[in-house]
Nucleic acid binder design. Structure first.
Lengths: 338, 338
DNA sequence: CTTTGGCACTCTTCCCGTGCGAGTGCCAGC
DNA sequence: GCTGGCACTCGCACGGGAAGAGTGCCAAAG
């Protein structure tokens, strides 16, 4: 167990290192923070912290920098979430309120997050799986060709073409449309399969094949999780990453292009509050020197998607967490209103 | 006017510099290309080329590198478009054929282009303005709230909420839907305004306001050019840009995030074939040390959108142009089939 | 037992001078 | 107009030396 003062020292090291980007030594520490002890004492504490694996030195006779473990302790125990100031909150709200549709909300959110945190922002589109159906529309494009349009409560629209096994009359189509909507409108995606299970039975035998085809396409659309899209922004902030560029930045850019990777990354954060994954805690090795700060957001009390930022492990955690949390909150409000 | 040999020298300089990324000297030139003359002669030619502004030397007593003007001459006169090999074309076709919907086509195209050229790829979504209407759907969500869904021939779907000035019955809605579609289905966007001009007259006076509102929303949607979306990929290739990193890469990343900038960039290329904009020819100053190779693509003979790549001015122009052209061609085919 | 000042030691970093090599420009000769 | 020769210019890599920051350890004091 570490003494109170050693934790203070760790906190000071993290803060200084985040500010200066340079290894911090015992003398500088005592000068910048009034710890009330001499450099020599701090050195002892540092040695202890190093033994425990919270800090490390790049080379002998250089200052110390926090390890992933050190940041973890800092985030868990030593730092709170820095709340946004009132003007900042107003700015967030104003900026998001100008959005005209879902795409715009997401786009603005990305820009905002990137700007506030000066890091790379990632915003997942409100996910289908937890949403509810607003409306299902069926359009006959050709005798045996139907277009299915699914509209969700978050305003998202998905469309699919359906090739019917047999021609399908307008009357039948209207019938199906009506029955379908009366059953699923307003219901959660997860509940839809059961609700439409026996729907084909209500139709003439020759139409049942088509009805089944349409329904299965609808169900596919609902569960199709790889349709989960996301938007990223602020990649230019990667240039502030470190001095040893190409090596650091390349794998990160590569990881950011793999939507699958990012989705998994966001998906792993189960915490109801702000989640922080530091350095090697991220499964993807391209992100081993980055931290991901993420949080769920949603229109109601429930989270329907995640958003977050990706930045160097050496980041301002309290500030970033505060920004992420605040943005998520306001996006939720905006979504609830629309 | 430059002699034939001087042009050859310029071509050789461009080729070598693109290959090695290092200033090329007279001796190396004569060794790698059998120009049939001595280094001294080449030196004279180089001096002439430098006077004309086609090449420059980073410092006295270093080799020469091409200027933007030099690349321009190279692209216009000295280099053709390098056609893809048969296996490459097969690979392109195979890769694109797996696409399931429009989003997927665009996503695959971006990946493909980025991979083929090892540069940043930009693909504009098939634009609305030149497309035709496949179907317009109207859904009543509340008595005075209608959702308008526009489906284009390229499979793109746009939706808009319409708040009606007065309640609008299901019957009237069905009527409007039918009339609207009979007029505009299959027509080009540009023609729509005239086609629906007198549509409100056919309705009861109390419904006319609503009909007008719906129509004007439709027209807005059609012309809304800032809805032109695009997808970029291969940003990780920026790391191969140059040695002097942060300075070079940052403005490019910033420019790439400004969709407006990119759209303008693509829009400026009026040429029916492959367009190349080199260095300072790009209006945006963040892209002053990059070249943009772009081309239109479309489902029919007509271009409905653009795609291209952004890379360092020092790029393999013939190869890049070949790849861009080939990809555009195959994407066009895919779009025509679906 | 903790804290402190002192001290020797270790590295890294910066600076500067030097030598090397690539490449140029010019000139005289073919 | 082409070629070979030659002197000249720089950029760059190399190496030594000095400076500085920081550490670890120790002995003494609280």
């Amino acid at each position: 167990m570490l003494s109170e003062r050693r934790l203070q020292v760790l906190r000071a090291i993290v803060q200084d290192y985040v500010g200066t980007e340079e290894p911090v030594g015992s003398k500088a520490l005592t000068e910048r923070h009034n710890l009330g002890v001499s450099p020599a004492t701090v050195r002892n504490d540092m040695a202890a912290l190093e033994d425990e694996g919270y800090i490390a030195q790049p080379h002998t006779s250089a200052g110390r920098i926090p390890t992933d473990k050190g940041y973890r302790l800092f985030v868990d125990k030593l730092a709170g979430v820095k709340p946004m100031t009132a003007p900042e909150r107003r700015a967030i709200q104003n900026f998001l309120e100008g959005a005209v549709d879902l795409d715009d909300v997401v786009a603005r959110t990305v820009r905002l997050l990137a700007q506030l945190t000066r890091q790379v922002a990632v915003v997942q589109y409100p996910s289908l799986t937890r949403s509810t159906v607003r409306h299902v529309e069926l359009l006959s494009l050709a005798p045996a060709r139907v277009m299915l349009v699914l509209i969700t409560d978050t305003g998202r629209v998905e469309q699919r073409m359906v090739d019917c096994p047999a021609p399908f009359g307008e009357a039948s189509l209207a019938d199906l449309r009506a029955r379908l909507n009366s059953r699923v409108a307003g219901r959660r995606f997860a509940d839809v399969p059961k609700l439409v299970e026996d729907l084909p039975d209500a139709f003439d035998p020759e139409d049942r094949g088509t009805v089944s085809t349409v329904l299965s396409t609808l169900l596919e659309t609902l569960v199709e999780e790889n349709e989960e899209r996301l938007m990223i922004g602020g990649t230019a902030n990667l240039t502030r990453f470190g001095h040893d560029f190409p090596l650091t930045i390349r794998p990160v850019l590569e990881a950011l292009e793999e939507q699958v990777v990012l989705l998994k990354l966001l998906g792993e954060a189960k915490d109801p509050g702000v989640t922080v994954r530091i350095g090697h805690e991220n499964a993807h090795e391209g992100l081993n020197s980055t931290s991901v700060v993420s949080v769920g957001y949603g229109s109601g009390g429930e989270a329907v998607a995640k958003l977050g930022v990706v930045g160097p492990t050496r980041m301002d955690y309290p500030g970033t967490m505060g920004a992420v949390r605040a943005v998520a909150r306001y996006v939720g409000q905006i979504l609830a209103e629309s």
